[in-house]
Design a protein around this nucleic acid. Structure first.
Lengths: 343, 343
DNA sequence: TTGTACGCGTTATCAC
DNA sequence: GTGATAACGCGTACAA
């Protein structure tokens, strides 16, 4: 009934060649005569052959798998990054086995075990739960993206520059006082750099500024509440002064802008707002929000490129175990919209 | 130097058992004595053994791979669906190889070829490019989600019910005229049902209603333009009547609401708006938008469950080739927010 | 240019 | 309860 799977043996029999020749047809076609190639090509169609890469893996060790662990896909940042990573298939040919972590550390270890069992050649980690030191202990090329990366290769946005850019956008709009809110980040988090970028730039330009450090919460309701409180504070603290607000991301910026609207029925001259990420919410907002965009495609491509290099080095036996870590940094891109108009 | 990989052979040597016993340790542990199990367990730790599922695949044929093809991950609907599918790992144990299609038909065929080469056991297709008839021609369990599904198993939202629910929300808010815009959908698209749900409900309740059918574009700018034009039409066509607007999705609904604000500086009594998808934009909007939510988790779980059933049937040889297609339908959930207040 | 023979790491089938 | 042996499908020295 169900014809058994067609293998090289079948093709060999059918064409009169040996298995080896069939194998070579796929791997080094030029080592066959054009005529014989045609003969085999015909046989493939005739027998309806489908290649089996699993067998190839067992024979030559190369899976062309890269594992990916993301924290979740509900945040646009992660899903667009994943999209960009998947798109590198056309350039590098790697196939991606994807897991979504959801902050469960033990579960993520289980994911890693599965990935290793399938002989992945490299791993991209975007989730934050497993320390980079532990990641580094696995004997496999790893790149982390926008997370603690003390012991791993990484690709990150130049967050410091992002902070600088955000501050400069506000500066161009000529505010009286400059304000940044953020949750109290660990200094090992790449995004910590934004805070430094902000305060350094303010200092450099001699701008009156203030940093509000407070937990902003994780659920949308919590975020709304904390931003609301922040808004009330700022609004009463600096009346009739033009306030330049640098929010930690676009979602917060949007909530803030909504509060402005509710109170003032328009986007008031007294405020300028800059977000971060250039996510859809920043341009879906009633007044499109100025923001700092990350170069997602570039980050993704760099991550896979680093892995690809290391994978090739391993294959060639050139793996300088002690060559030091790669920490690639990608500049962000300012996106000026309506919330930072000159006065 | 680099210790070669530890295999069953090594463990067998180390423990004095045979390869077979080691294999059984993993697959039918109860067939060993407790003492011997312990002995092997210790050896595994001692030798730092890591399982190799690729070899297992070659031997028993089960990859536990499911392939996924999404059109993109920038739309929240797709990324949250993917997230939900990945989360079924805990329940079913399947690993997912993911491709993002980007509407390139030939590229998607290439993806499918790769997936088959890796011996996937099932396939979930969310992209729209390849006709279901072609999909069905591949000899593998397939489930499609929210796309043309004439020849494949599928899981879809009950779009008709969604249309009914949206209309009823507007009806509860007591509008004078009911309006639905949509691009001219093919009747084979599941979402076509929403249009029917809308008009049937209007007819049933004897509501004055109108359907605007026009291309809404794919880029955000195009969308803005076409919604703007639609807004102008509606706003001038039915002055001083309370208009109940059912938009095809939340992004459109948000654009529409923004236009309302710009013109009226508030959300006017003259309008009610319902979106579709319950995506973040619907609650990030200045006035949280009423919408129809799809049960993403349920859809995802159902899709994997159907695949799992069919995969098991195949393994058991119970595959009734002609048992007919499964078209599972999941009811949506109305989410009433601020844009459909009673007057 | 082509073929032979063996290895990759596991599971399945029998036997004991 | 355990072991020997043959698959699984392909790659690759080495030989011809």
């Amino acid at each position: 009934m169900a014809k058994k799977t067609i293998t090289f043996d079948d093709i060999a029999q059918y064409t009169g060649f040996s298995k080896t020749t069939i194998s070579r047809y796929f791997n080094r076609p030029d080592s066959l005569t054009k005529k014989n190639r045609k003969k085999i090509a015909d046989a493939l169609v005739e027998l309806d052959y489908h290649e089996n890469k699993v067998a190839r893996i067992l024979a030559n060790g190369r899976t062309e798998f890269i594992g990916i662990i993301v924290p979740n896909l509900s945040l646009h940042y992660y899903s667009s990054m994943l999209d960009a990573i998947l798109s590198t298939y056309e350039r590098f040919g790697y196939k991606f086995i994807v897991f979504s972590g959801n902050d469960q550390e033990e579960m993520e270890r289980q994911y890693m075990k599965e990935l290793f069992a399938y002989q992945i050649e490299g791993l991209i980690v975007m989730s934050h739960t497993i320390p980079s030191k532990e990641l580094a202990s696995y004997d496999i090329p790893i790149v982390t993206i926008e997370r603690e990366d003390l012991y791993t290769n990484s690709v990150n946005t130049d967050n410091y520059l992002g902070g600088v850019q955000a501050t400069r956008i506000l500066y161009e709009a000529d505010c009286d006082i400059y304000i940044h809110v953020n949750s109290s980040l660990s200094e090992t988090m790449p995004s910590y750099g934004r805070i430094r970028g902000f305060s350094d730039t303010c200092a450099e330009l001699s701008l009156e500024h203030q940093i509000f450090s407070r937990e902003l919460g994780s659920s949308y309701e919590q975020m709304e509440d904390s931003i609301h409180e922040f808004f009330n504070t700022v609004d009463t603290l600096y009346p009739s002064r033009r306030k330049g607000i640098f929010m930690p991301n676009d979602t917060y910026a949007n909530i803030f802008c909504n509060l402005l609207f509710r109170k003032y029925r328009t986007f008031p001259e007294e405020y300028c707002v800059v977000g971060f990420d250039n996510s859809p919410v920043s341009r879906n907002s009633m007044i499109p929000i100025s923001t700092i965009g990350q170069q997602i495609d570039l980050i993704a491509a760099s991550a896979v490129e680093i892995l690809d290099d290391q994978i090739k080095q391993r294959k060639a036996g050139t793996a300088d175990k002690n060559q030091g870590l790669i920490h690639k940094v990608i500049p962000p891109v300012p996106v000026v919209r309506e919330t930072t108009k000159k006065r």
